[in-house]
Design a binder for these strands. Structure first.
Length: 772
RNA sequence: AGCGGGGUAGGGUAGUCAGGUUAUCCCGACGGGCUCAUAACCCGUAGAUCCAUGGUUCAAAUCCAUGCCCCGCUACCA
């Protein structure tokens, strides 16, 4: 069996990964790995955190903590994000492991032995105060060209001329200002020119099928001449040299991090109980294709430096393809991980907090920067979920399955006698889609196959519409339903690499939970089995935005003039309760501008809260026994804005601070980080009828735990009465505030804000805790 | 500055290497239809000086030249 190695560029850990990293290299790698497994190949997919990068050390210095702390903090964050996104790593490790140290040091020694390393003496700036060598950019001084006193050792920001630290007048340490000295230091250089011929030979052998941009860039780089590159540096964070007498030096990250592909493979092998198993993928004579996915900033490392290291060491497999993507930017610039004050969620943990992983995967795949840079647009993100995933794909599943449920007792109907897949137009369409998708996926291209699958979705919808099974006699009717289910079943497989979670839900719905098992890619061509009972479940995708229409929600019917009201979703759920409507709650996000003690009460605060209105509102709240003023001031919290104004001990309260209570514990209701004051509940609008405290008490808002998906991938919530399936997709595990219906037994409805965020308790409280 | 990539309807995007009748597809807008389905689905219409200028050609989004804008590498950023 052919084997596939999937390497993913190693993220460095000075902040959480954002949607650009996902779209650019992690997701393509995962789609590819999932496809290859479905196609029956043996796959090894590894990556991990690059812990020894300078940004990690810099951030550690800024926070005055050891680099390990920063590295492991963000390693945990990234690993968790990837897990929740369903990135199917066989191992996601990091470079601060014993295995990696040993492997990297071993390669260093081998290259030294083989004569590919050379010791050279150079001069560098040195800070006597820090007692260490300074990176060029940490040396500052006066620019010799323009006189800028703050020029960096690598470049002057004022005249943009490139500089050497030696050229600066009065060089000093950027961190402490101490005058810098010049000292000599010894470093090991990797003699790339010695490997130029084997490298060219390698390029001739494989570059034929590389993407043109990767090939041209690489060829051009080599043509300009390879220079020896230093592979050690003066720093104390990283992998020590395996030699005596080099205590202050470490292996350079560019050299060491790429070795992670090999060390991670060895670690994976060790964990499987067969320490030699990595050779199945790294033996150059094994039937293996190695893929290294990454962004365009990393091309030379994977097409030149890493192959050169492997050639120098010898007897190891070389990359077969290096599918490098461009960047997914946000608003015209590369997303910087040091960016602060985000208006939209771009970091994976923030997105995962609010959205189903398949939605994030879909957007990233649909806008994958495969040919050129693309942009992340949050409005588009939400719109496309509704318009494409929910309306086209989700609804296709829903309409076909529910038709079979109502007309065929929830079983897959028999096709007419003599029906053949290859003779039906839809069957032919499926076969063509399957074949073309396979061709693209084999070439590590992803946008085309996704488009092809979506085209099949539309075709299935079209065929169903055109055939009018609701008005057709048998056997036409059962044929159309059968063919609809055929398309749904095939699409679950074809979309599996892209949308693994929802595809699994479809598989469950079809009563074939093992549909996405390895080797099943070809089963997309097979029709389903008549008579098999269909499962039940909520719609595949919940909508994030909903058109404002009269029956959607009673509360949205008033004052729909503001453009934001159009973004309203449902408050009452898909099936609004009949009879007396529960009170409409105008919950608004506000920022606490000020907190004062109430002059005449010892349990009350007088808060000044910015609700995004002309002036802040005065709200009296009885939370003084629970929270000191400093823990409230400046916080962003949820406020009931249509509370009838009421005087409390002489101060009129123009709203109500919402908080959940359990015994002595109290939690404020808070929106997702970054929510702006004035944000209301989805579907709500300003100017609702005011309600009294008694009416509010009947609203039945409680804390609910969102439980991790069980084996059937259904997200459940527990509002204190045992788990029930969630009516909408919620990030799990987490806690949200839900509104129970009158009986409190059917679907609890989470309080969803405009923009899709959910209100949650500021601190953990048990499920069922009441909001008062 | 040198090197590589990109600039196509309101947004996104294919086509560019191998030049050829009405420039692809998706979303949105507008109009119509259907009623099985999550007010979903289906059909149709409008909307593009293909970054600019010049050139080659019977014919240019496509080839050539120059310029403008964006991104990456060159750079102890990783």
């Amino acid at each position: 069996m052919e084997r596939i190695f999937v390497g993913v560029a190693w993220p460095y850990v000075n902040g959480p990964q954002h949607v650009g990293h996902l779209a650019g290299n992690i997701l393509p790698a995962d789609i590819f790995a999932r496809y290859q497994r479905l196609a029956g190949r043996e796959v090894l997919m590894v990556s991990g955190s690059d812990m020894h990068g300078t940004p990690t050390a810099v951030r550690a210095e800024e926070e005055k903590v050891p680099p390990e702390e920063i590295a492991f903090r963000f390693h945990a964050v990234d690993a968790e994000s990837f897990r929740r996104l369903g990135i199917s790593f066989d191992l996601y490790t990091h470079t601060h492991t014993e295995m990696h140290f040993r492997t990297a040091q071993g390669i260093f020694l081998t290259l030294l032995q083989e004569g590919y390393l050379e010791k050279r003496t150079t001069e560098a700036t040195y800070c006597p105060h820090h007692a260490r060598f300074l990176p060029d950019r940490y040396t500052v001084g006066t620019c010799p060209h323009c006189g800028n006193p703050e020029a960096r050792g690598d470049q002057c920001d004022v005249c943009s001329r490139l500089l050497e630290p030696r050229e600066l007048k009065e060089p000093r340490c950027r961190l402490c200002g101490t005058p810098a000295e010049f000292r000599t230091t010894e470093h090991f250089y990797f003699l790339l020119p010695k490997l130029e011929e084997p490298l060219r030979e390698y390029h001739r052998r494989v570059a034929e099928h590389w993407r043109p941009s990767v090939r041209k860039f690489t060829e051009n780089f080599v043509a300009q001449g390879l220079e020896p590159r230093p592979i050690t540096r003066d720093i104390d964070w990283g992998i020590p040299l395996p030699l005596e007498g080099y205590a202050g030096k470490r292996l350079y990250v560019w050299f060491e991090a790429v070795i992670g592909y090999l060390s991670a493979s060895k670690e994976w092998a060790t964990r499987t109980g067969d320490p030699e198993r990595w050779k199945r993928f790294w033996d150059p004579s094994a039937p293996v294709r190695m893929y290294n996915f990454q962004g365009k900033d990393n091309i030379t490392f994977h097409t030149i430096f890493w192959p050169a290291i492997l050639l120098g060491v010898g007897n190891l497999a070389l990359p077969y393809d290096v599918p490098a993507n461009e960047f997914l930017n946000i608003r015209g610039g590369k997303i910087s991980k040091s960016r602060t004050g985000e208006e939209v969620p771009v970091y994976l943990p923030d997105l995962l907090e609010r959205f189903d992983p398949d939605l994030i995967r879909f957007y990233a795949a649909y806008h994958m920067p495969q040919n050129h840079d693309t942009e992340f647009d949050f409005d588009e993100f939400r719109q496309e979920n509704d318009q494409i995933l929910a309306d086209q794909w989700g609804n296709l599943v829903q309409r076909v399955v529910s038709f079979a449920r109502s007309r065929y007792g929830g079983k897959i109907p028999e096709p007419p006698r003599g029906w053949k897949a290859e003779e039906s137009p839809l069957g032919a369409w499926i076969a063509r889609t399957h074949q073309e998708m396979s061709l693209h996926l084999e070439e590590a291209r992803f946008k085309e196959p996704l488009d092809l699958a979506l085209a099949l979705v539309r075709e299935a919808n079209r065929a169903f519409h055109e055939g009018k099974p609701w008005a057709s006699p048998e056997p036409d009717r059962s044929r159309m339903v059968f063919e609809g289910l055929y398309a749904v079943r095939s699409l679950a497989i074809l979309l599996g690499p892209f949308l693994p979670f929802s595809s699994q839900r479809v598989a469950d719905l079809l009563g074939e939970p093992d549909l996405l098992a390895p080797g099943n890619w070809r089963k997309a061509l097979e029709p389903p089995e008549p008579g098999r009972p269909l499962g039940e479940g909520p719609p595949l995708f919940a909508k994030l935005l909903t058109e404002d229409h009269p029956s959607a929600t009673a509360s949205a019917s008033q004052g729909g003039s503001s453009p934001k009201a159009k973004e309203g979703g449902r408050v009452a759920g898909p099936h609004p309760p009949e009879g007396k409507a529960p009170p409409a709650l105008d919950v608004v996000v506000g920022r606490v501008v000020d907190v004062q003690d109430h002059p005449k009460a010892d349990k009350l605060y007088v808060l000044s809260i910015d609700l995004g209105e002309a002036s802040p509102r005065t709200v009296v709240a009885g939370i003084k026994p629970f929270l000191p003023p400093d823990e409230i001031r400046g916080k962003t919290i949820a406020v009931l804005a249509n509370m009838a104004p009421r005087p409390l001990r002489g101060v009129t309260s123009q709203g109500m601070v919402l908080a959940a209570e359990h015994g002595q514990e109290l939690a404020l209701l808070v929106p997702p980080e970054g929510t702006l004051p004035g944000t209301r509940l989805a579907g709500a609008a300003k100017g609702m009828a005011s309600i009294t405290a008694d009416e509010f008490a009947r609203a039945r808002l409680v804390v609910a735990s969102v439980l991790p998906p069980a084996t059937d991938a259904t997200v459940r919530v527990d509002a204190g009465k045992g788990p029930v399936p969630a009516p909408v997709l919620l990030p799990a595990p987490s806690a949200v505030i839900v509104r129970l219906d009158r009986q409190g037994e059917e679907s609890p409805e989470p309080l969803r804000l405009e923009g899709g965020g959910y209100l949650s308790p500021s601190r953990p409280l048990p499920p069922g805790a009441r909001v008062r």
